[in-house]
Amino acid sequence: MDDTTSRTNYSVPPVERALKLLHYIGDGQRARNLSTVSRDLGINRTTLIRLIHTLVEHRMIEELEDGGGYRLGAGLVSLGAQAIEGRDIVHVCRPILRDLCLATGMSAHLGVLDGRDIIYLGREAPNSHLVSNVRTGSRLPAHASSIGRAILAEFSDARLRQIFTGDPPAQATDKTPRTLEGILAQAHNDKAAGFAWSVGNFEAGIGSCAAAVFDHSGQVVGGINVSGPEARFADRDPALIDAVTSAARDASRALGYSRR
């Protein structure tokens, strides 16, 4: 039995409908008009009402004032925080990010790969107005972000082709690869360098440097970066590169990685 058949056989429709509704609200839809929500999600209106009441009761969503609809609730936020806190990589990297932030004077981040995206699990920011807007929980296209590039650089061409087969890759700026072949070339360059260096690749005016983090089995499990004003990245500062790659090595060692 393949994975697709297994997922189909063991799927629970009520749970799927609840998850669809949570994603719908999480994407910014306030679900004010239940008839519209019913049509958008393909869920019977009566079933939808029951789902909403159940999710409200369990604090997964909460009702806004003055008929403003719904938003994700404190119960879901708490559950998400528990999931994040349960990741060893988060605990390991928190003090490392703090030290990296202090050493460079820039925002330091931890991210992991999810499909074609990077999810940010940790962030340390300096006491400055010139800091990154990325927050814990943010998602960015992997091939356009420095952390994503550092992770993708550790993959084989076959795996990269598998990840990016289908829809064209998202376009962030004119520096973002537009094709699969462009992503492969970028990954080869980043692998050869040992880090990913960005000067406005994802966002104009913002630069970044990232390196991959490995676990005890030698698998890449995430990436660490610093980001800040583009001017700081005009030249490939060896001290900055060393700070980032050293932080990633420290995180890898703490996760049990030993380069053979």
Rank of each mutant, 00 (worst) to 15 (best):
D99K: 08
C101G: 06
C101V: 02
L102T: 10
L102N: 13
A103F: 01
G105N: 11
S107N: 08
H109W: 03
H109T: 02
G111H: 11
V112S: 03
L113N: 05
D114E: 13
G115R: 07
R116Q: 10
Y120F: 15
L121E: 10
L121M: 05
L121G: 02
L121C: 13
R123Q: 04
R123D: 01
E124R: 05
A125E: 12
A125I: 12
P126H: 00
P126F: 04
N127I: 14
N127W: 11
H129L: 15
L130C: 06
L130Q: 09
N133S: 09
V134T: 06
R135L: 08
S138N: 13
L140C: 07
L140I: 14
A142Q: 06
H143W: 06
A144T: 06
A144V: 03
A144P: 06
S145F: 02
S145W: 00
S145C: 01
S146W: 03
I147Y: 00
R149I: 13
I151V: 12
I151R: 06
L152T: 03
L152C: 14
L152W: 03
A153G: 03
E154Q: 15
D157F: 10
A158R: 12
A158T: 10
A158G: 02
A158I: 14
R159K: 04
R161W: 05
R161H: 10
F164K: 03
P168T: 08
P168H: 07
P169A: 04
P169G: 00
A170L: 07
Q171E: 09
Q171H: 07
D174G: 09
D174R: 13
K175Q: 06
P177R: 14
R178A: 08
T179Q: 09
L180F: 03
L180Y: 12
L180V: 04
G182F: 09
G182H: 09
I183N: 14
L184A: 08
L184H: 14
L184P: 13
A185Y: 02
A185M: 12
A185V: 12
Q186Y: 02
A187E: 07
A187I: 01
A187G: 04
H188L: 07
H188A: 15
D190V: 15
D190P: 07
K191P: 13
K191E: 15
K191D: 09
A192T: 08
A192I: 11
A193W: 00
F195M: 01
F195W: 01
W197Q: 15
S198W: 08
V199Q: 15
N201F: 08
N201A: 09
F202C: 07
E203I: 10
G205Y: 06
I206W: 14
S208R: 07
A210P: 07
A210N: 09
A211H: 07
A211G: 01
A212Q: 15
V213H: 03
D215F: 10
H216P: 01
H216N: 13
H216A: 15
S217M: 13
V221N: 11
G222C: 05
I224W: 03
N225H: 12
V226H: 09
